[in-house]
Amino acid sequence: MSIEPVVTIKNLKMNFGMKEVLKGINLEIYKGQIIGYIGANGAGKSTTVKILLGLVEGYSGEIKIFGEDISNGNVEYKRKIGYVPETVDIYENLTAYEYLTFIGEVYGLGVEQVNNKAKKLMALLGIEDVYHSRISSYSKGMKQKLLIISSIIHNPDILFLDEPLSGLDANSVMIVKEILAELAALGKTIFYSSHIMDVVEKISSRIILIHEGLIVADGSFVELKEQSSKGSLEQIFNQLTGFNKHKEIAREFINELQGV
C-alpha cells in the first residue's frame, strides 16, 4: 500500500538577492506526522514555511500540497492549512472577538459558529476574560495563545507552526504539546520549527535538521541518535551543524564585556 504524501517538496531553492538561502530541499511529509524542523538562526526554516504558505514567492522547485502544485494559483489548499508565524504580528487594534470571527468568516464559518468556538477555545486556554479587549493590551503569551487559536479555528489538516511555544508559560506549553499530540493522533500533520531542542526531542515523530540551506538529517530521534552516537538532540544539532566552540565564544564574549 502506498500512502500519498500530504506535502511534497522537490529541489526547493530560494535566493534573496545574491544570497542562496535554500539550496535544494527535498522532502515528503505524511499524514499524522509531527515534524520538528530545526536549524540554526538564518538556516532557512521560516523561509521554507513561508514559501509553503505562499507568503514568499520567487522560489524554484516544485511544491505539492495534497497533490496539487501550489504555484498554479489555486488557493483551495489554504483552507486545510493553519499557520502560526514566527513573530507575533497581528492587527492588534482589533479585539480577539473581531479578529477571530473575521478569520473564521473568511474560512466560510458562520459568525455565531465561529464566535462560540472562539469563546470556548479562549476559555480553555484561560484567556476568555480578554475576548473583547484589544489585542494590543495582551501579554506576549496571550497573543501567542490567540495566534494558536486563530490557526486552528477552521480545523485544518496541516499545521505550520513557527516557534509556537514562545512566550507561553510552563502549564500552557504542556497543554499545547498535548493538543499537538492529540491532533496528530487524529491524522493531522504538524510541521513546526523550534529552537528548543528538549521540546523537539520529546514531541516530534520525525526530526528534520536544515543546515546552510540543505537537509542534513532526517529521521526519528532514535534514528538520529544511532547515526551520530550522541546523547541529546542538542548535541546532535551541534555535531551536524559543525559547532563545538560555544565555551570559547562565551568566554571571549565575557572578556570583551569586561574590557579585558
Binding site: 504558505l53 507568503l55 488557493v75 489554504k78 483552507r79 504580528d89 492587527y91 487594534n93 473568511v106 474560512y107
Partner: peptide, 17 residues
C-alpha cells in the same frame, strides 16, 4: 496604511483566490 501593517500576512494565509 496601518500601525500594525505587519499583520497583513494574514491575507495571504487565508484561502482567497
Amino acid at each position: 496604511t496601518s500601525e500594525n501593517y505587519k499583520g497583513a500576512w494574514i491575507y495571504k494565509v487565508l484561502p482567497i483566490e
